[in-house]
Write a protein that binds this DNA or RNA. Structure first.
Lengths: 238, 238
DNA sequence: GCAAAAGTGTTAGCTTTACACCCATGA
DNA sequence: TCATGGGTGTAAAGCTAACACTTTTGC
């Protein structure tokens, strides 16, 4: 088993999700930031933010660094999606991409420098992207929606404390369907992952809802090969 | 975004699973083949079969080729597991490993050349392996067991037709728990993924069980980013 | 009081689980 | 006829989904 004379470039890209209101309906929905390519191939087309992996950094560090450099965003959640390595997926020299997906809070998303070469798009209504990036986004969307149903990733979109309504609206925006408030409450309560705080939110024209926080003692279901053994694979910033 | 002068080696490794009887109890259980390292680092220790990715082959092709070269096995199922890229995971030059997991049928597993440098081990009772390979195997085991509950990967361990008993024994061996034959039958029948054949198996000292086959019209649940769009990511050999 | 969302109660229908019991065969 | 698994029946328990209803606030 020895190293043959190869020259495969190793890149990372990230599908970044944030919740923002749609301009038409005002409803909360998933958006992703894209960067415009400024060279061939696919010059001028929109693409996922990404870059090359440096020798001294892990794949995940490379993803986080590229995120910050290209979009100025710091994600609340970062997880590996898939390694894309088809020979013909890129014109030009052979490149393998390790793709991550990330979640950012709305305040963080609003800080993102939007300009000529960085713009947010609704995740379900994207233009034609460079490379195989449309396929990648579709897969990331599928993973996010699947994982939303059995894990606690919704917290990445929320602050330290939140009402059950706020949590439900996150689920509704991601899953694209209305949820019964009564049943949602029971389902969450039975999961045992939330603890009620002593505070309520007053000011609304209705009964003040209680604030909850996530129970830190309860572990995530699947946070990767390293995370499962508590060495910290998936990056969760509290 | 330009390529910096890097020299990261790209490798593939595979966690290969087969069902074989345990020597003590005779019960069917998961086994994996390991290869002995013949050079530093970790000289003499057991490791996952793997090798370098060539410039002209996809990651999946590289995994399949290495499988064949190191263990002479052709898998019935092959799926990407994870890309491991921590800086300090290997002594020596920086290496990133794309790890796959594979399932092979028992006939195929028996063909595997076992010798001084290739040996089968029970998946739940491994020695200390080279690199981070124990962590990797644990993760692959978790993925296999999770996926067994909602997808149709059990077919990779079976022939074209099989009895419900045979299918149940595959599930029991992988999940390490007894399943009620009556409830298992109904669960499988309701899933609609099997069709009964006109044949039964005679010769046993009991009522001859019917043979079933998988309904080819029913799709797998999750076979990867490319597979989901029917371009063939996960490799399923019928 | 009224609107609006918070929160509780209730019921039908479905799924899961446990286990009783009959069936068909070889020896 | 007996042992052995194949295959069917059934009922309790648990979960899901739909929706009625009460509670608490601001105006």
């Amino acid at each position: 088993m020895q190293q043959s004379g190869q020259a495969i470039s190793l890149a990372v890209s990230t599908v970044i999700f944030a919740l923002r209101p749609l301009p038409e309906s005002g409803e909360s929905a998933l958006w992703i930031p894209l960067v415009r390519r400024t060279r061939e191939p696919y010059d001028g087309q929109w693409a996922l933010p990404g870059g090359w992996v440096d020798n001294h950094e892990s794949l995940e560090d490379a993803a986080a660094r590229n995120l910050l450099e290209t979009t100025a965003l710091e994600p609340a959640y970062l997880e590996q999606l898939y390694a894309f390595g088809e020979v013909e997926r890129s014109i030009g020299p052979r490149a393998v991409s390790i793709v991550y997906w990330a979640l950012v809070r709305q305040e963080e998303a609003d800080r993102a420098t939007e300009g000529e070469n960085v713009r947010w798009f609704p995740a379900d209504d994207l233009p034609e992207l460079a490379f195989d990036h449309n396929v990648i986004v579709d897969y990331a969307l599928w993973r996010l929606r699947t994982k939303m149903e059995y894990s606690r990733i919704a917290r990445a979109f929320l602050g330290e404390t939140f009402t059950l309504s706020e949590l439900r609206i996150v689920h509704e925006a991601v899953l694209q369907k209305q949820l019964d408030p009564a049943n949602f409450r029971r389902q969450i309560e039975n999961s045992g992952s939330l603890v009620p705080t002593d505070h309520v939110v007053s000011g609304g024209r209705h009964r003040p809802p209680r604030l909850y926080r996530y129970d830190e003692g309860v572990e995530l279901v699947d946070n990767g090969p390293l995370g499962r053994l508590k060495t910290g694979s998936t990056r969760v910033i509290h």
